[in-house]
């Protein structure tokens, strides 16, 4: 056997094993210390991340192939059906859009009256999700865009139905983003019905968010839509975040137990929008008045 040959060569001892072990442990602890304290190791992280990139592409390939096959095999009748559906949707959307334009004009006029800055529409860019991490203590995803596409740390990610998360580490070609359901994620929101402002916190469960700071007598109901309030600066205002799905008022506790369901389907999304927000801080103060 090969194994016994090796033993004869070296009598099973690895030179300076203990020394190397202690050295590496020391290096690990040092790395963790510096990584936790400040972002000095970003470049190291990014270069190793670039080395892992090909593996990600390979992992992603079967899924890409599957979607491509699905696209090419779709039957004609299906396509026609989809086309008519899209046409109707387009008509409805255009109808709404006309109203929107009128409203936008009105809004602008009113804002000018209030001497506030007019709201600039956000610039967006579509990007693809390459992989999702959903172990309960780390809800994150890798997106197919990096600093070369202008991605920056803290950038907002939005899906078709609502906010998905934010970029926490912009790499060169891919970036790491944190989902709003991550336990470490908190997001300033407001209830669209009455403007009640609060904070939404992730729970570690992908289909559930928490509102820990709602006082017992606050006006909040099941079905209330929460949108980003734009406070904190990371997220532009007005994007849907979640719908309240349970409100438990506990008389013995200062805060009610409120949970919400994310508006975006965090598990199923394949494409996301990166928001290049053009909003600045002046507007927030204007809204406060």
């Amino acid at each position: 056997m090969v194994a016994s040959n090796e033993n004869n060569n070296s009598s099973g001892r690895i030179p300076a094993l203990g020394f190397r072990f202690l050295g590496l442990i020391f290096v690990s602890i040092l790395l963790m210390y510096f990584d936790n304290r400040d972002g000095h190791l970003e470049t190291v992280r990014k270069s190793i991340g670039a080395a892992v990139h090909p593996v990600r592409v390979i992992v992603d390939a079967p899924i890409q192939l599957w979607t491509w096959l699905g696209k090419s095999i779709t039957s004609r009748s299906n396509l026609e059906q989809e086309l008519t559906q899209h046409k109707t949707e387009k008509l409805i959307t255009y109808g709404r859009l006309q109203k929107l334009e009128a409203l936008e004009a009105e809004n602008k006029r009113l804002r000018e009256m209030l001497n506030a800055r007019s709201k600039v529409p956000d610039k967006t860019r579509v990007t693809e999700i390459m992989s999702i991490n959903a172990n309960p203590y780390n809800h994150s995803l890798i997106i197919d865009a990096g600093t070369q596409d202008g991605v920056f740390d803290g950038q907002a990610l939005v899906g078709a139905n609502g906010v998905i998360g934010q970029v926490i580490e912009a790499g060169f070609m891919t970036s790491l983003a944190m989902l709003i359901s991550d336990m470490d994620h908190a997001l300033p929101v407001e209830v669209i019905r009455n403007g009640l402002r609060t904070i939404v916190v992730g729970t570690g469960k992908i289909d559930s968010l928490e509102l820990p700071f709602i006082v017992n007598n606050a006006d909040i109901r099941i079905g209330d839509l929460l949108v980003t309030s734009g406070f904190g600066g990371a997220f532009p205002a007005g994007y849907p975040v979640a719908t309240v799905n349970s409100v438990k008022r506990l008389p013995q506790e200062p805060y009610a137990k409120v949970t919400a369901k994310p508006a975006a389907s965090l598990e199923q999304a394949r494409e996301v929008l990166l928001i290049f927000s053009l909003i600045d801080q002046d507007e927030e103060t204007a809204e406060d008045e």
Binding site: I25, S28, L30, D35, V52, N138
Partner: peptide, 17 residues
């Protein structure tokens, strides 16, 4: 371990240790 740390986005050195 370091590669795992980078790909999982954990503290650099955690899995390595």
């Amino acid at each position: 371990g370091i590669i795992l740390d980078v790909s999982q986005g954990t503290l650099l050195g955690q899995h390595a240790l």
